[in-house]
Amino acid sequence: MLEIKNINAFYGNIQALHDVSITINEGEIITLIGANGAGKTTTLMSISGIVTPRTGQILFNGETISGMKPDKIVRSGLAHVPEGRHIFPYLTVMENLDLGAYLRKDKDNVKKDLEHVFTLFPRLKERMHQAGGTLSGGEQQMLAISRALMARPKMLLLDEPSLGLAPLIVKQIFDIIKRINEEDGTTIFLVEQNANLALKVAHRGYVMENGRITLEDDAKKLLVNEEVKKAYLGI
């Protein structure tokens, strides 16, 4: 479904990604794990068109999306939940959700998706008219995921959804991520520093170090891989 082929991305003269290749099939949860500054976020930003890779190609459903403008990429069915959640702080929860469906014209389905999002995260319904900036960290993460779902994406890009959240909330959010994948059939690309958590929900995983993919395997195998254990799982 998504094919990243040998992309190289730069910030000025500094190379952030070296020959990164990742393949994601429909219906999978794929995780990309690695340390801070390894290039995980840059990989996601390249998919969304915020960063344009200098060389290499990104295909989504057979269509080249590298070099396309971000709004075209969203239109093709990719939704991105960025690191740090990026809630519009002075817009209400409802307005944030509405904006998730910004490009959609099918108003009836948008309404259905709103109901769906509220069943996934009932807390958001209670906070509907509150400004986004006044929500707690966990609620903001729920809102960020919901806003992305409002685009009814074929594939969801999640950047560090566990960042800065209490373990209980993290578990709740990861359960929902699994449900979105299993019940709605949405393909998920999950970037996480919390490797243990990510590998437990994912089907396959990639390990990134200094802008390079160094390992790729089934998530279950990565969980017991000696190197991964030492470097990322703290065992």
């Binding site: 971000p70 709004d71 519009f88 904006l99 998730g100």
Partner: peptide, 15 residues
């Protein structure tokens, strides 16, 4: 309003 508050996110939702 969205663009004024967070330009990156505005791009990411397709504005």
């Amino acid at each position: 309003r969205a663009t004024a508050q967070d330009k990156t996110m505005a791009l990411l939702i397709g504005i």
